[in-house]
Write a protein that binds this DNA or RNA. Structure first.
Length: 561
RNA sequence: GCGGUCGUAGCUCAAUUGGAUAGAGCAACAGGCUACGAACUUGUAGGUUGGGGGUUCGAGUCCCUCCGACCGCACCA
């Protein structure tokens, strides 16, 4: 950074300001342990940033927060660097409110221009995170709920990486157990129906029509050979074929949805690799297993589960939970912290998985995020999603209808613990009713201005890219936009810490809104070179932050629309 | 029946985890383009945070209770 004014030499960062204010508080009340964290002020008239230290000190100081805030401000302002950074400091209703110098916000723009897409990155935490999401049975196409889980998981993964975590994403393919048998018999029935239409369909099979093309493909390749071998053998082979076909489709849809995984873990592979035995054996060594009625149980009630769970059945076969035992044991080997994003029907698992973490001596190391239910709407009509009735809406259909951008933006927009109503008609609308367009329009608008600038203001554009002349940014709308850009890093950090990916679309909207207001108030391409250079710099910085935010959301940042 | 999640403006949702006067968007109404994209912008209106009680300087957030919605309660996966 090239300081354009001498003041910049002593301009403090927000963290440095916090340290000085904490020091001021400690000087006044030596026994106190003040926690100073400056956050964006709730309302513009309060100032730029605020902290609520005074509330925490009220007990020790035996004074009203308002008086404490006033005393801290007076003390802190004795510091030269604080005075150089802060334009105004006011105690208000117990809060310490600061209005910062324009140079502070100009420096933010310079930072963005210098760091580009790396802006807002957190330092590496060294913490390894295993993040599992999306996982579905390989017995049918991905449905809308998985769209939500994919969006939340992928955005969380990207945000956590941006914030400095070492994130490993995985999907577990539930290709072991009795459902594979049901899948095999279903495909076998579909296959037989190609020859004998009256063939009955298995009662516990998967009735959706999506298995018909799978059966047809088998017919294409092998003709009628599977009618001539014993049924058990045919079912086994067809199950494997259907599993491979469906998993490939699921992977393709996820990829089209913009989601790439580090690992697609096959459950069957865990079985074949004796991972189940390893996981269970470890539990036995740790003494949390016991035998009852011929079966092997794990004590999960210690962690608040309703009842203990069977791990190995009396006939020697492992239960489904044994898979979790093994899989989480593996995950805990390679990660410090394991996060599972599960559907709403899995909340019974939380206690179980907690118990597992406890049993493995890693209490708190397994965390579950529940993505709540999703209701599909088309206008006023609520679409029922019943597997039995065959009316399920696939993720691919949603992508085809509304596009990846709208779908991902909508799915990640709401907090995970909120049931969501998704209106296909609204998502499809290319109008101001659709929030994704508002943000994308902001990006396209900037791109358009920059295109124009290349023609008419090439020199200023080049200077702006070098971060020059930002001292000319003094209009309230320019400073408000800069202030919003400054929130990017802490927003991403908050998303990672609170596992709250929905804050990103909200933030994107706020950035776009501040930009539109700035654009409305200030003409960018003017006859004054200094003004033009500064505003172009602000535009480039805004485009960078918008594009990065959209990228984290898995939404494209168009040059034009 | 037991357990869990949730209930915020007409609609869809926020509220940085206990902090300021509960905020946005849409829809409604009233304004703003002879200059860089009006898919924009300015303003108005809209609330007993499901009801009641409690905890404390301070509650949409924590505790209790009732009402309502959804989801779980297998040696299925």
């Amino acid at each position: 950074m090239n300081p354009t004014t001498t003041e910049e030499h002593v301009l403090l960062s927000l963290d440095e300001l916090a340290v000085r204010f904490a020091a001021a508080a400690r000087a006044l009340w030596p026994d106190a342990e003040p926690i100073v964290q400056f956050e964006p002020a709730r309302r513009v008239e309060f100032g730029d940033v605020a902290t609520n230290v005074a509330f925490g000190l009220a007990r020790i100081a035996r004074k009203k927060p308002q008086e404490i805030a006033a005393e801290i401000i007076a003390r802190a302002l004795e510091d030269d660097a604080v005075r150089a950074t802060v334009a105004e400091a006011t105690p208000l209703a117990g809060f310490v409110n600061l209005k910062l110098q324009p140079a502070f916000w100009q420096r933010v723009v310079a930072d963005v221009l210098r760091e580009g897409e790396r802006y807002g990155r957190g330092a590496a935490t060294g913490e390894r995170i295993s993040l599992e999401f999306g996982s579905a049975n390989p017995t049918g196409p991905l449905v809308v709920v998985q769209g939500r889980t994919l969006s939340i998981g992928d955005t969380l993964a990207k945000a956590m990486r941006h914030a400095g975590y070492d994130v490993f994403t995985e999907w577990i393919i539930n290709d072991a157990g009795s459902q594979m048998d049901a899948l095999g018999r279903s495909v076998y029935a579909r296959y037989r129906q190609l020859f004998y239409p009256a063939t009955p369909f298995p009662e516990d099979g998967y009735p959706g029509e999506y298995l018909i093309p799978v059966a047809e493909k088998v017919h294409e390749r092998n003709g009628d050979v599977w009618l001539r071998v014993p049924e058990d053998e045919a079912v086994l082979t067809l199950a494997q074929f259907a599993r491979d076909t469906i998993v490939a489709e699921q992977q393709e849809v996820a990829r089209r949805f913009g989601v790439e995984y580090d690992l697609w873990q096959s459950e069957k592979a865990l079985h074949d690799g004796h991972a189940i035995e390893r996981g269970v054996e470890r539990l036995r060594e740790l003494g949390v297993l016991y035998e009852k009625d011929g079966a092997t149980w794990i004590r999960t009630t210690d962690a608040g589960d309703d009842e203990d769970r069977v791990v190995i059945r009396s006939d020697g076969r492992p239960t489904y939970f044994a898979n979790d035992v093994a899989y989480h044991y593996e995950k805990l080997q390679r990660a410090d912290h394991v996060i599972d994003i599960l559907g709403p029907d899995h909340h019974g698992y939380i206690a179980r998985l907690k118990a597992l973490a406890n049993a493995y001596g890693r209490p708190g190391a397994i965390e579950v995020i529940l993505a709540q239910q999703i209701t599909l709407k088309r206008g006023d009509e609520i679409l029922s999603m019943s597997k039995r009735a065959g009316t399920l809406v696939t993720l691919q259909e949603v992508i085809d209808e509304v596009g990846v951008d709208a779908a991902r933006f909508f799915f990640v927009m709401l907090s995970t613990d909120q049931p969501l109503t998704f209106d296909l008609e609204l998502a499809k609308k290319q109008s101001n009713e659709n929030p994704v367009f508002y943000v994308q329009y902001g990006h396209a608008r900037i791109a358009s201005v920059l295109r124009k600038a290349r023609e008419s203001h090439a020199e200023q554009l080049a200077a702006a890219e070098r971060g020059e002349g930002l001292g000319a940014l003094i209009d309230p709308s320019e400073l408000a936009l800069s202030r919003k850009l400054a929130e990017f890093g802490s927003t991403v950090a908050g998303v990672a810490r609170a596992r709250a990916p929905h804050r990103l679309p909200k933030y994107a909207r706020e950035v776009a809104s501040e930009f539109h207001q700035f654009y409305d108030a200030c003409r960018v391409l003017t006859s004054d070179p200094a003004t033009t250079t500064a505003r172009l710099g602000l535009c480039i910085a805004t485009r960078t932050v918008l594009a990065t935010t959209l990228e984290l959301c898995g939404v494209s940042a168009p040059e034009s629309m």
